[in-house]
Nucleic acid binder design. Sequence first.
DNA 1: TCAACAATCTAATTCAAATTAGTAAGGCGA
DNA 2: TCGCCTTACTAATTTGAATTAGATTGTTGA
Lengths: 346, 346
Amino acid sequence: MAAARPRQLDIAKLAGVSQTTVSLALNGKTADYGINPETEQKIMDAARELGYVPNVTARALRGGRNRLIGVHAFEPLFPTGRESYYEEILVGIEQGAVRAGHDLVLFTSIHQHTGQANIFHEGRNRLRIADGAIILGFEQHDDELVRLADEGYRFVFVGRRERAATLGPYVSAEYAAAVRDVMSRVHALGHREVAYLGLRDRAEPRLERREGFRAGAAELGMAVVAETWAGAGEVEASWIRQVMDGGATVLLVESTGVLEEVAERVDELGVDIPGDLSVVGLDSITDPSAASHDWTHLLVPRREMGARAVELLLDVLDGRQEPTHHERLNCTFRPGGTLGAPAPGV
Amino acid sequence: MAAARPRQLDIAKLAGVSQTTVSLALNGKTADYGINPETEQKIMDAARELGYVPNVTARALRGGRNRLIGVHAFEPLFPTGRESYYEEILVGIEQGAVRAGHDLVLFTSIHQHTGQANIFHEGRNRLRIADGAIILGFEQHDDELVRLADEGYRFVFVGRRERAATLGPYVSAEYAAAVRDVMSRVHALGHREVAYLGLRDRAEPRLERREGFRAGAAELGMAVVAETWAGAGEVEASWIRQVMDGGATVLLVESTGVLEEVAERVDELGVDIPGDLSVVGLDSITDPSAASHDWTHLLVPRREMGARAVELLLDVLDGRQEPTHHERLNCTFRPGGTLGAPAPGV
DNA sequence: TCAACAATCTAATTCAAATTAGTAAGGCGA
DNA sequence: TCGCCTTACTAATTTGAATTAGATTGTTGA
């Protein structure tokens, strides 16, 4: 049991050379240092014979880097409910890490005891374990992030940019332009009166969508019949009735969860989509097979955002990119069956 | 900007002591070595002031602990499809890690280039960065695991036990007993003729279920009308018809995916569940709201398995548990609406 | 008053690999 | 035959933390 792992020194003894020479040979630097090809061969043979495997830890210690990328969220990463906001982003981060040959560290320890996660829990910054980190989540802990940045720690944000812009690089989606694009498609089909149903929260991605909506309505000369906020379980049939009575022929819905609630209420009213009312979702649909309709909606490139965040972090760490760089990825319009021309009678 | 990471030596200088003393103070060994409480306080203050965090790499090199738990799978952890086998287990692992105050390292780097993941890929064993690892997945890489174990590396398996038993501790579910329990419930309701629909693969958890099924049938004197294997998309209505004609009044289905296919075929046949045929699932249902029926089925405690694996790993690392220990968690029977008494006419 | 001892702390070493600064041996020109 | 340059290597150092083996100072009992 527990046969000691062979070290470079063991190879050196077997080949009758020094540890230095072994290191040089194994790293292909024989030419630079004029190592005899025969010696090199002896070393390689000895290494193979002993089943040598470099010790990552020693290598990392010397090199100053771990090849560890931290992933930090202020909430648990794998929530118990379905429809994890992070899920797709995590898939992207994993793919990015695979490509870059790095491992991921999920900072779970800091969630301990308190429901809240503090980076500087007990006065230590665990994030430092990793070479740099990707920060997810909407919750605001700006003071901690400022301190992190002050300490020279490198990180990249995904999905938000409020304070991020002043603190470090970020990757997010171009929500405003995407929604403006939706508006012009809607306009092109003949719609002139539109309603908007958003979430009650004021997270940046939502605010930007609203910005795009208003800008689009203004530019295209469309009338905003209603702009209303609802939480989960709060969509009311009477509101939809009212909006339609008000002349709206199309409804933009910010969140996918609310979208399904809208479908239920519309069903209750006996209204036809898109015959009586067109409905467009402004977010990705994680599981289209579970959706009630073939929704017309936007695709937010969450997976690409995750993958790009990894690349960006490594670029910053390697000095290939200044730490103020940011990137915005485009959303795609997915045509479905819930956007049509407005009913001619209206 | 980019202030170099503080080392113990920096703390030592600030506090006016040696690096040794700093190390002792930070590791709570002041009592053993008679360090003055005032000195200790000075050191702690200096450490906080500098924002000191131990260097994982140096510690790992020395053989120390890092409060890092590795998670290794031979396949990507976050698969692109829905219905991730790992998902629930990962949730459990995360919860376990949170409770234990440890962080998780997801070993993604080894998936690089080759679709296959080798621990000793490119001659480096990254696992050593973590204190120990939890190993998931069905794929067989026994030679690598044997080597890891020989090197004294500690790990715990989740969900399998074939070779695991000889290599280290494992946590898995008690499938056979659970299925036997299902059989006795079915028997108690009056069923005497039963059919079994399994997956085509021969993974351990499936083999155990079949074992439990056969043992139950034998003990209870029930007739096995059919025992058939199907892959995704291979369930045929004719098979169900045939099985029912053969007298089967209840069908046990190994996998949740196949369960839904069975529902579709049964619908096509105009057969009533459970009036004409009772159906029992032998696996968890991740998203009951997306299920076509209120299935009667087994709950595999995947989340507990993950959480328990973390505890077990730490027990082994701390020497509280011998490294041959294993644990089997019970599955729960979830009564639903798809198991009833057999039709009296039969 | 001196050895013994406790109380406090430190120098030196270790872990495995990478790198810097040399060294030894041989050849060649002047 | 002295000095200089190659060729082909090696000794020593570095990385950050933990540990082993001391070292220093002061106190106390005989």
